[in-house]
Design a protein around this nucleic acid. Structure first.
Lengths: 113, 113
DNA sequence: AAATATACATTGGTTTCTTATGTATTGTAC
DNA sequence: GTACAATACATAAGAAACCAATGTATATTT
């Protein structure tokens, strides 16, 4: 199953921030692959969604970047700034709260303890 | 706490369908009030979002309508069509699956069994 | 040598929602 | 009895976020 795109709307930034929280630094392509792997292909980030989001987070001072060359190929690493770490905690906790509300509203039984 | 609007994106139709599944028929204003009440004001549907969604669901054959007059004031009741009942089950189960994926991805502990 | 994977990025379009506005009736508080 | 809030519908203009497509280029596998 691949989720309908409307479902994923609004969660992309939270996913990016969580991955960066756990991994110190990651580059764009790596993020798409990690999400694909962790969700068993259920969530597939498109580049057209990912890169603008990364750029927006950087412009907001939430992410910092370092560019490196692997051979001749450029690679841009993203990391959480101090502000980013705070924002990440808030976003995840807001999402957790939202999920509990939705679970109650939709009367859903979950299968993960 | 009122959730940031981006979080709610993509969930509106699922919420509408779930309420109609439980209540046979409801009118627009009633839906806004019920959601507000059930979520303790955390989710407040705006009319500008609700009515276009209801109209779209009706146009897709997912909802049927009956108009009644309460005194001189018009009230438009919405109900699930046969197709709508099927779609509702699919939507809720897709959302439940999505929540489990997100819970795993964000490493969230839930407080509802 | 060709195909696939890696790695960045932008552009045009669509969907979905927000804010604002509009109309009208009914109930409540002063 | 009149102003305000609540009830109840609706649309329109714009913003935000995402998707699909396209573009460029290098590296690896077959």
């Amino acid at each position: 199953m691949i989720y309908s795109s409307e479902l994923i709307k609004g969660t992309l930034k939270t996913i990016i921030l969580k991955l960066l929280k756990d991994n110190k630094r990651m580059y764009g392509y790596e993020i798409t692959q990690r999400v694909k792997e962790l969700t068993h292909d259920r969530i597939q980030l498109t580049e057209g969604a990912l890169y603008p989001s990364l750029h927006a987070l950087e412009a907001d001072g939430i992410l910092t970047t370092e560019t490196e060359y692997i051979g001749k190929r450029v690679r841009k690493y993203y990391s959480l700034s101090a502000k980013g770490k705070t924002v990440t905690k808030e976003k995840i906790s807001e999402f957790a709260d939202f999920m509990n509300t939705m679970k109650f509203l939709l009367d859903i039984k979950t299968d993960i303890a």
